[in-house]
């Protein structure tokens, strides 16, 4: 990513993810401030999309960032992973809060701080660029309805596969395969940059 010259000099030490993670581990409040400024709107946007109310969404963002702060030494932050990790944590907490609000059973899924993603470097780089370019949004909207809807119910409504099957009146096997096909289709679009090219043409 190109350097942001508009930032005051002291913040520029946190341009790189590895440095930001180091700053968090060193308990430098400036590191958390930079992280919040970088991700706050996206994190709140996701929590708000899931929960539908501002105060609850703010609680989730606060809890997620403070969890990161308290457990900074457990994060392995190579390039780009810190952003993904924050957003994964926000997603988890938002879905848990949503399920409590609805009186549904909590999913009891834990976030594994030590999880090492065995993703190829090229693909990880592509996903990062697509995040910056908004291609993910495009790739999602370009999915056929029958794949997009189950993915949205899973990711933004926090439904389990059984609940999705009930909600859409589909066999469980159909739900499982549509979730997978949808993700594979998005992967292809992100890998080749098709979404962005189609948008520009």
């Amino acid at each position: 990513m190109s350097p942001d010259l508009s930032q005051p000099p002291e913040r520029s030490i946190y341009r790189e993810d590895g440095d930001l993670a180091d700053g968090l581990r060193r308990r430098d409040p400036l590191a958390m401030e930079v992280l919040y400024e970088r991700l706050g709107r996206q994190a709140f946007g996701l929590a708000y999309r899931i929960l539908g109310d501002g105060p609850s969404a703010e609680d989730v963002v606060q809890e997620a960032l403070l969890t990161i702060w308290r457990q900074a030494d457990r994060i392995d932050a190579t390039r780009g992973r810190l952003n993904s990790f924050v957003m994964t944590l926000v997603h988890h907490k938002a879905i848990d809060a949503l399920r409590v609000k609805r009186g549904q059973q909590a999913r009891q899924v834990s976030v594994d701080f030590a999880e090492v993603e065995k993703v190829g470097a090229d693909f990880a780089e592509r996903v990062l660029q697509s995040i910056a370019g908004g291609e993910v949004r495009v790739a999602l909207t370009k999915l056929p309805e029958e794949q997009r809807r189950p993915i949205e119910l899973a990711y933004y409504e926090g439904l389990t596969h059984l609940e999705i099957a009930a909600a859409l009146d589909l066999p469980l096997g159909t739900v499982k395969s549509r979730l997978r096909l949808g993700l594979e289709k998005m992967r292809t679009a992100l890998r080749s940059g098709t979404g962005d090219e189609l948008r520009r043409s």
Binding site: G40, R41, Q42, F44, G45, L46, Y48, R49, I50, G54, A57, E58, V61, S84, M87, T88, V90, H91, E117, V119, G120, F123, A124, V127, S130, I131, G134, V136, R137, L140, I151, Y155, Y156, R180, L183, E184, M186, R187, L190
Partner: peptide, 18 residues
């Protein structure tokens, strides 16, 4: 890879100002 794509969905939600 599927996990990475699903994780990217976090960024498909519109940004909002808290």
């Amino acid at each position: 890879e599927l996990r990475a794509v699903a994780g990217a969905l976090a960024f498909a939600a519109p940004e909002a100002q808290p």
